[in-house]
């Protein structure tokens, strides 16, 4: 596992152990990668981050059409692997989680321990000055910077 912010490590390790998830990617809504586990290439992280953000944005638009406040969690079930996309509303803005898991665990367990992780992250999050809102064009720059940090380049 690699994390940008050390205080994320312990709760995320607990989540991985309890949920038996295979891949986890935690990003801010502006694309900064906070932590990742299981990805072997920065290209995969970049793609997953972009696609995950896109899916959440699309479903948010559908929720608007439905007059709903939004979907906190999206589940895609596959035959061999499944995917959960979930949001955590933090004082620093919305964080997005992408979790991939196989048949050694269940959707219910992954969601249960994701909720525990979200509570722990919110409880541990250091106080910080609110950063100015990021624009879409800074998404890729922030993503590149955090990927370089995560993959040690």
């Amino acid at each position: 596992m690699r994390t940008i912010e050390p205080w994320v490590t312990e709760p995320l390790e607990r989540f991985l152990q309890e949920s038996q998830a295979r891949l986890v990617l935690l990003t801010t809504s502006s694309g900064q990668v906070v932590a990742q586990h299981g990805f072997s290439r920065s290209l995969d992280v970049m793609a997953a981050s972009s696609l995950g953000a896109g899916i959440m944005a699309s479903t948010g638009a559908i929720a608007d059409l439905m007059g709903s406040s939004g979907f906190g969690t999206i589940v895609h079930e596959g035959t061999r692997q499944s995917l959960i996309l979930a949001a955590i509303d933090t004082p620093r803005g919305r964080w997005l989680g992408l979790v991939v898991f196989g048949r050694e665990t269940t959707v219910g367990l992954v969601q249960l321990f994701w909720n525990v992780l979200a509570r722990e992250l919110l409880a541990r999050m250091p106080a910080t000055v609110n950063a100015p809102p990021k624009r879409a064009e800074t998404f890729e720059r922030d993503l590149d910077a955090s990927l370089r940090s995560l993959f040690g380049r």
């Binding site: 269940t106 219910g108 367990l109």
Partner: peptide, 24 residues
């Protein structure tokens, strides 16, 4: 899936947690 399809619970009980943990 560890997902609850239906539940009858006292106030304060977490049916989703019960379903996930009991299933596993």
């Amino acid at each position: 899936d560890g997902i609850a399809l239906a539940g009858a619970l006292r106030d304060g009980e977490d049916g989703d947690a019960l379903a996930a943990l009991a299933g596993a």
